[in-house]
Amino acid sequence: MKVKTHIRNMLATATLMAVVTPLWAADPVLVAHKISGNDALGDPGASYWESSKAVKMAMEAQTVATPAQPKVTVTEMSVRAVQNGKFLGLLLEWKDPTVDNLLITDGFGDQVAVEMPVTFKKDDLPNIMMGEAGKPVSVWQWRAPAQNDKDNGKPTTKQLYPNSNYDLYPDQILPAETAKLYTGAQGLGNPVSDGTKSSVMEMVAEGFGTLTHVGDQQQVAGKGVHKGGTWRVAMTYPLDAGNGVQLAAGSETAIGLAVWDGGNSDRGSRKAWASAWLSLKLSK
């Protein structure tokens, strides 16, 4: 029953896309120049980013798919890229005066995501809105709450609710295996439950509602820092990887961008996005 609805959504989107958005951004091409070294390029504070010319992308309210976010707070994203023959590095910077990294019922986290075709074909790009069947996109998403987990440890209920009190948790009286049954998504290894391993998630999608974490196949890494009212997030991915996104020195691809302001209750499809692909070229 969902497939039909899904197809209807896709068709509606395709029609809208054809009318409202060009395929490629009018901005200049983002070039990842080669720098020296063999290490991953995921440090937002590193000096190597200075060798890259930033491309500014306009971020717009996502109003094509439901649920929509008609009012967004982030309107511009700066993107830089470097590579060293072993890794690609991307640096994303945007203005957000507040750090939103605590997840409670009415509290959402700041996030940013990069999307690119798993296999790039210049004349046969996937739908920029989460890819399409047979043309998967890879999505790398950095999340402020996960960064907080990694930097400071995952907040406990007592830290989230200082005045709370609770008699007894299952893990205080039951053997670990039995207590695990009471941990829901965390016990199942859902990556959103625990950011201490990585603040970035690697996912694939073939259309709306299909975004799925790659699990143990994750190759992306990264880090985000907030300074002077600006988020600065670096993500790095291996070149010539056997599986996942196919990237190599001298190759090119297209990247899509999305950003979420937790303070604006952005999450999921309620986000700001760049409505056209940005061309990314990796120098030889």
Partner: peptide, 28 residues
């Protein structure tokens, strides 16, 4: 599906009976 849920809370928002809840530990 606790493996697929990403904690967007669209169900919490949408259900008029408010019977889906957000778990601040699992974030789903």
């Amino acid at each position: 599906d606790q493996s697929r849920c990403r904690g967007y809370r669209e169900c919490v928002k949408g259900c008029p009976y408010k019977k889906p809840f957000f778990n601040s530990n699992t974030r789903t």
